[in-house]
Computed example of a mutant assay.
Amino acid sequence: MRETTAGRARMIMAPVILGVVVIVLWQLVVVGFAIKPYVLPSPLSIWDQFTRAFGTIWSGTKVTGFNALVGLLLGAVLGILFAVFSALLRVFDELSLPVVLALAVVPIVALAPVLYTMFGAGEETARQLVAALAVFIPVYVNTLRGLRQVRPVHRDLMRAYAASAWQATRTVTLPGATPFLFTGLRIASSLAVISALIAEYFGGPVDGLGRSITSAASYSNYPLAYAFVLGSIVLGLVFYLLTLALEKFATRHSPP
């Protein structure tokens, strides 16, 4: 028990210590070499702007976070459904493969303006769809891979026990696919935030973090722009940690 606690403490403290060291070195380099803010602001100036504009950053975080959350849920549901159908129906798998490959290489920077034209720049629909598209691919690929991990010997064993299709799915297929599914979700959680931010660069209201970053940079207020970037980083970490907590909960309470 003590070894486990000590190991967890090391896992938490190691990145924290590394982060503190990087920030201190960053501050020393900026001050020591008199680097201009438009090249690289100092951590202290970024933190000062972060505390001053916290209300604006919080408002932008809620807008961007909501779009990323909607995109994450929509893309995850579609990715799981497509993976299930592809695993069960070979015809569906063969027909959907070219579509999935095409979606995987669609550039977000080109798709966002098209969606704004379709739904209107003032609506959040375009940003949510961009996030959903980014989420769909990793969830689909990882879930499908997990569903196909069942070994033939396990299938034969379930047939020997005269297990029904649902019993085989519940006891063999789903437990084997769960780690792959959550791997896709953890990857997708960060992609949802990044995609929502990128989509905000191409128009629409200035409420989100993406537009706030470009607005601050256009006025040469680079510490403020980095403060909005810090808010985006925190938002991405929150999404990742929530997904990780959901994975821990699901695996801990999964049936044996």
Rank of each mutant, 00 (worst) to 15 (best):
A216D: 04
S218R: 14
A199P: 10
G203K: 01
L209N: 12
Y222R: 10
D207P: 07
R211Y: 08
A225N: 03
R211D: 04
D207C: 01
I198P: 03
A217V: 08
A216F: 01
R211E: 07
T214R: 08
D207G: 13
P223N: 02
A227T: 08
Y219A: 06
G208M: 02
A199R: 13
T214E: 05
A227D: 02
A217M: 12
A225C: 07
G210D: 11
E200W: 06
S195N: 02
N221P: 09
S212A: 15
S220H: 12
A227Y: 04
S212H: 10
Y222A: 07
S220G: 04
G203E: 06
P223E: 00
G203Y: 09
L224V: 06
V206G: 13
Y222N: 00
G204D: 04
I213H: 06
V193H: 03
R211F: 06
Y201M: 15
A196K: 03
A225H: 00
G210S: 06
S220L: 14
I198M: 14
A217T: 13
A227L: 04
A192F: 04
Y222I: 02
A227G: 13
N221S: 12
D207A: 15
E200N: 04
L224I: 01
P205E: 10
L191I: 06
L191A: 13
G204F: 11
I213G: 09
A196S: 11
S218N: 06
S195R: 03
P205H: 05
V206N: 09
S215R: 15
A196Y: 08
Y219T: 12
L209D: 10
S212T: 04
I198W: 08
G208Y: 02
S220K: 13
R211G: 14
L224T: 07
A192R: 08
Y219G: 00
V193D: 04
A216W: 01
A227N: 06
I213Y: 03
R211V: 02
S212E: 06
F202Y: 14
G204A: 09
